[in-house]
Design a protein around this nucleic acid. Structure first.
Lengths: 219, 219
DNA sequence: TAGCGGTAGTTAAATTATTCACAATTGTTT
DNA sequence: AAACAATTGTGAATAATTTAACTACCGCTA
């Protein structure tokens, strides 16, 4: 299972499958076909089967996939069957919302340390996490084997914070700042950027010439 | 300029260009080449030129692109040269962080109305926006010609809220709930889902066989 | 004004991703 | 037990996207 063989787009879709399977499981389903999963996620059954085939054979012909089994396999493939301690940098409004967000922990992403450069914030305890000074970042990341850094500082400071995290040994970064950060090839970057999302949305809200303005009447 | 001719991936990249150009402009640059823009955004110059060529000819051979001009053209193409009034549904912790976020308004996205089903929240004023009951949603969206809805309610309620927004006439939805919503073809959907981002990140943090474990010694 | 370095726009080629189509297999029904 | 309906996994075909390569052009310099 050579990771360079599996296209990135496929990896991006696997968590979608995991989530849909969890839903199905919660609903009591034991078996699901690529057809059903496809209509749930609005994609073609062929794509789902193809995606899964990169990793093995999980289904039974004529039946479909065992929901619980497939979910567990995908979680294992993605590394979701373990804990991923993370640290947060920047405990402003956004950072606090992130620390308090209840969606990370159940998925194994626990924020075990928080940092801020503001002396006012340092020492505060937010949702059980003590805010530490930036000068502690490097050592803490190393000591606690933190592989994931979450960045919620203003754009102006984001790149230098990311550099710090990388220097500390973090291997993945979830960046909320509205910039296009530079990271080494061996560091995985994911950007959360609602403004970009809105800005690409508006194009489709504009009127465009994609058809005759008036119905064409044949003579 | 038929929108069906322009690939979606291209539209997704345009805001990136707009942002990079704004940065360059702030830095005093008057002209930029696809080469420079590419290294700033970590993409090939060819891709940038190709993307721009879908919309016209903006550069000068031997020189590059006029930063201010290209930025304005792209903003016009994306519809960013106008105001996009938006409404927010769900003013819990996340919703409040969104309303208070200072990054939307400068880009023309102003939250002009907020809704919540909790009677405790209704009537409150958050950052100058009064929270209204869900029963007002439909009429308000229509009256104020709100084209964009932002959804920050718990997953369980998200689909029904989205249905409401669509019924009210919203044409684009920015969804923060961790679900895969169903929307009609004529409604543009963008999901903000940090958990999915993390879940696809961890795959790359795992050890994978992508090369010999030990150096191979030739005899 | 002729030549040159540099860069856009564009056509063609290469690469990547998606969809199709079908053999193989499963469980069910008659 | 045979026929049948359903569904996977996959190789081939198709479609989409990216990259490369080249022509035309711009502004500068000698």
């Amino acid at each position: 299972m050579n990771r360079t063989e599996v296209p990135d787009v496929v990896i991006l879709r696997l968590p979608l499958y995991v989530r849909a399977l969890a839903q199905l499981l919660a609903g009591g389903a034991e078996v699901v076909s690529s057809q059903q999963l496809g209509s749930l996620l609005q994609m073609t059954p062929a794509q789902i089967r193809k995606d899964l085939s990169y990793f093995g054979r999980f289904g039974k012909q004529g039946r479909g996939y065992n929901v619980r089994f497939l979910r567990e396999e995908l979680r294992r493939i993605l590394g979701l069957d373990r804990k991923w301690p993370a640290c947060l940098v920047g405990v402003g409004r956004l950072g606090q919302a992130i620390i308090n967000y209840s969606g990370f922990a159940p998925e194994g992403f626990t924020i075990v340390a928080a940092f801020d450069r503001d002396p006012e914030q340092v020492g505060r305890n937010i949702a059980g996490v003590e805010v530490r000074p930036m000068s502690d970042l490097r050592a803490t990341v190393a000591d606690r084997e933190i592989a994931v850094g979450i960045v919620s500082v203003p754009a102006a400071q984001a790149q230098s914070v990311i550099d710090l995290l990388v220097a500390g040994g973090v291997r993945g970064i979830l960046n909320y700042a509205p910039i296009a950060p530079q990271v080494p090839l061996n560091v995985v970057l994911r950007n959360i950027d609602p403004v970009l999302s809105l800005q690409s949305m508006t194009f489709y809200l504009l009127p465009h010439d994609d058809g005759p303005a008036l119905p064409i009447t044949l003579p």
